[in-house]
Amino acid sequence: MTAAELIAFAAFEGGVYSQAFPAFGVERRGAPVQAFVRFSDEKIRLRSQVYEPDYIIVQDPTLIGDVDVFKGMTAGGIAIVNTEKPDFDARVPEGVKVYAVDATTIALEELGVPITNTTLMGAFAAATGEIKLESLEHALRSRFSGSMADKNVRAAERAYNLVGGAL
Protein backbone atom coordinates (compact mmCIF):
# COMPACT_ATOMS: atom_id res chain seq x y z
CA MET A 1 0.00 0.00 0.00
CA THR A 2 2.90 2.36 0.72
CA ALA A 3 4.15 2.02 -2.86
CA ALA A 4 0.66 2.72 -4.22
CA GLU A 5 0.25 5.73 -1.95
CA LEU A 6 3.66 7.14 -2.91
CA ILE A 7 3.10 6.63 -6.64
CA ALA A 8 -0.31 8.31 -6.45
CA PHE A 9 1.13 11.13 -4.35
CA ALA A 10 3.99 11.67 -6.81
CA ALA A 11 1.53 11.71 -9.71
CA PHE A 12 -0.63 14.24 -7.83
CA GLU A 13 2.46 16.37 -7.22
CA GLY A 14 3.04 16.17 -10.96
CA GLY A 15 -0.29 17.86 -11.59
CA VAL A 16 -2.93 15.14 -12.14
CA TYR A 17 -5.73 13.74 -10.01
CA SER A 18 -4.86 10.43 -8.42
CA GLN A 19 -6.34 7.84 -6.12
CA ALA A 20 -4.71 5.01 -4.16
CA PHE A 21 -6.38 2.34 -2.06
CA PRO A 22 -5.66 -1.16 -0.76
CA ALA A 23 -7.60 -4.34 -1.37
CA PHE A 24 -9.15 -4.08 2.03
CA GLY A 25 -8.92 -6.38 4.95
CA VAL A 26 -5.80 -8.47 4.48
CA GLU A 27 -3.09 -5.89 5.10
CA ARG A 28 -0.46 -7.79 7.02
CA ARG A 29 3.23 -7.67 6.33
CA GLY A 30 4.15 -10.90 4.57
CA ALA A 31 0.67 -11.78 3.32
CA PRO A 32 -0.14 -11.35 -0.37
CA VAL A 33 -1.81 -7.96 -0.72
CA GLN A 34 -3.01 -5.79 -3.56
CA ALA A 35 -3.26 -2.04 -3.80
CA PHE A 36 -4.59 0.05 -6.63
CA VAL A 37 -3.80 3.42 -8.19
CA ARG A 38 -5.64 5.55 -10.71
CA PHE A 39 -4.43 8.72 -12.47
CA SER A 40 -6.65 11.09 -14.41
CA ASP A 41 -6.70 14.64 -15.74
CA GLU A 42 -10.19 14.90 -14.23
CA LYS A 43 -11.49 14.26 -10.72
CA ILE A 44 -11.69 10.50 -10.10
CA ARG A 45 -15.14 9.24 -9.12
CA LEU A 46 -14.79 5.52 -9.80
CA ARG A 47 -14.43 3.42 -6.63
CA SER A 48 -14.20 -0.15 -7.92
CA GLN A 49 -10.99 -2.16 -7.81
CA VAL A 50 -8.79 -2.16 -10.90
CA TYR A 51 -9.51 -5.22 -13.06
CA GLU A 52 -7.77 -4.23 -16.29
CA PRO A 53 -4.55 -2.51 -15.26
CA ASP A 54 -2.43 -0.57 -17.72
CA TYR A 55 0.52 -1.13 -15.40
CA ILE A 56 1.35 -3.58 -12.66
CA ILE A 57 4.15 -3.74 -10.13
CA VAL A 58 4.97 -7.15 -8.67
CA GLN A 59 6.87 -6.66 -5.43
CA ASP A 60 7.35 -10.33 -4.62
CA PRO A 61 8.25 -12.64 -7.53
CA THR A 62 7.34 -15.77 -5.52
CA LEU A 63 3.69 -14.80 -6.10
CA ILE A 64 4.01 -15.35 -9.82
CA GLY A 65 3.55 -19.12 -9.61
CA ASP A 66 0.58 -18.91 -7.26
CA VAL A 67 -1.35 -15.93 -8.52
CA ASP A 68 -2.03 -14.76 -12.07
CA VAL A 69 -0.47 -11.38 -11.41
CA PHE A 70 -0.87 -10.33 -15.06
CA LYS A 71 -4.64 -10.94 -15.06
CA GLY A 72 -6.59 -8.32 -16.99
CA MET A 73 -3.54 -6.85 -18.74
CA THR A 74 -3.68 -6.29 -22.47
CA ALA A 75 -1.29 -5.32 -25.25
CA GLY A 76 0.55 -2.10 -24.49
CA GLY A 77 0.58 -2.79 -20.76
CA ILE A 78 3.74 -2.51 -18.71
CA ALA A 79 4.76 -4.77 -15.84
CA ILE A 80 7.56 -4.07 -13.39
CA VAL A 81 8.67 -7.19 -11.59
CA ASN A 82 11.01 -7.24 -8.64
CA THR A 83 13.21 -10.25 -9.26
CA GLU A 84 16.86 -11.23 -9.24
CA LYS A 85 16.15 -13.77 -12.01
CA PRO A 86 15.10 -11.86 -15.14
CA ASP A 87 14.22 -15.12 -16.91
CA PHE A 88 11.37 -15.98 -14.49
CA ASP A 89 8.73 -18.31 -15.82
CA ALA A 90 5.38 -16.59 -16.27
CA ARG A 91 2.60 -16.46 -18.80
CA VAL A 92 2.77 -12.83 -19.78
CA PRO A 93 -0.11 -11.64 -21.99
CA GLU A 94 0.92 -10.79 -25.52
CA GLY A 95 2.08 -7.25 -26.00
CA VAL A 96 2.80 -6.62 -22.31
CA LYS A 97 6.29 -5.26 -21.75
CA VAL A 98 8.01 -6.63 -18.67
CA TYR A 99 10.83 -4.89 -16.82
CA ALA A 100 12.65 -7.15 -14.41
CA VAL A 101 14.34 -5.10 -11.70
CA ASP A 102 16.34 -6.49 -8.81
CA ALA A 103 14.80 -4.01 -6.42
CA THR A 104 15.55 -6.08 -3.33
CA THR A 105 19.29 -5.86 -3.95
CA ILE A 106 19.11 -2.12 -4.66
CA ALA A 107 17.03 -1.58 -1.50
CA LEU A 108 19.44 -3.63 0.60
CA GLU A 109 22.41 -1.68 -0.74
CA GLU A 110 20.83 1.78 -0.44
CA LEU A 111 18.52 1.43 2.56
CA GLY A 112 19.93 -1.56 4.37
CA VAL A 113 16.50 -3.23 4.46
CA PRO A 114 14.67 -5.26 1.79
CA ILE A 115 11.79 -2.75 1.52
CA THR A 116 11.36 -2.16 -2.18
CA ASN A 117 8.57 0.46 -2.38
CA THR A 118 10.71 3.43 -3.29
CA THR A 119 13.03 1.50 -5.60
CA LEU A 120 10.09 0.11 -7.58
CA MET A 121 8.62 3.59 -7.69
CA GLY A 122 11.74 4.76 -9.51
CA ALA A 123 11.47 1.84 -11.94
CA PHE A 124 7.77 2.59 -12.49
CA ALA A 125 8.47 6.26 -13.20
CA ALA A 126 11.09 5.39 -15.84
CA ALA A 127 9.16 2.53 -17.45
CA THR A 128 5.80 4.31 -17.77
CA GLY A 129 6.71 7.99 -17.99
CA GLU A 130 3.67 8.70 -15.77
CA ILE A 131 5.75 10.37 -13.05
CA LYS A 132 8.55 12.86 -13.48
CA LEU A 133 11.72 12.25 -11.53
CA GLU A 134 11.40 15.57 -9.68
CA SER A 135 7.81 14.77 -8.59
CA LEU A 136 9.02 11.43 -7.34
CA GLU A 137 11.85 13.02 -5.39
CA HIS A 138 9.47 15.62 -3.97
CA ALA A 139 7.08 12.89 -2.83
CA LEU A 140 9.88 10.96 -1.15
CA ARG A 141 11.23 14.06 0.59
CA SER A 142 7.72 14.83 1.89
CA ARG A 143 7.31 11.32 3.20
CA PHE A 144 10.79 10.78 4.64
CA SER A 145 13.16 13.17 6.36
CA GLY A 146 16.92 13.56 6.71
CA SER A 147 19.15 10.70 5.67
CA MET A 148 16.16 8.38 5.15
CA ALA A 149 14.93 10.73 2.45
CA ASP A 150 18.37 10.81 0.81
CA LYS A 151 18.66 7.03 0.88
CA ASN A 152 15.20 6.49 -0.59
CA VAL A 153 15.77 9.07 -3.29
CA ARG A 154 19.06 7.33 -4.19
CA ALA A 155 17.33 3.94 -4.36
CA ALA A 156 14.57 5.34 -6.57
CA GLU A 157 17.05 7.12 -8.83
CA ARG A 158 19.16 4.00 -9.26
CA ALA A 159 16.12 2.03 -10.43
CA TYR A 160 14.98 4.96 -12.56
CA ASN A 161 18.35 5.15 -14.33
CA LEU A 162 18.58 1.37 -14.65
CA VAL A 163 15.19 1.06 -16.31
CA GLY A 164 15.65 4.33 -18.20
CA GLY A 165 18.88 2.97 -19.66
CA ALA A 166 17.09 -0.16 -20.82
CA LEU A 167 14.37 1.75 -22.65
Partner: peptide
Protein backbone atom coordinates in the same frame (compact mmCIF):
# COMPACT_ATOMS: atom_id res chain seq x y z
CA UNK B 1 -18.53 7.77 4.84
CA UNK B 2 -17.97 4.34 3.41
CA UNK B 3 -15.48 2.35 5.46
CA UNK B 4 -12.29 1.44 3.58
CA UNK B 5 -13.71 2.66 0.23
CA UNK B 6 -13.35 6.24 1.47
CA UNK B 7 -11.67 5.93 4.86
CA UNK B 8 -8.60 4.11 3.50
CA UNK B 9 -8.41 5.82 0.12
CA UNK B 10 -5.80 8.47 -0.59
CA UNK B 11 -7.09 11.21 -2.87
CA UNK B 12 -6.90 15.00 -3.20
Amino acid sequence: FDGFILSHTYEP
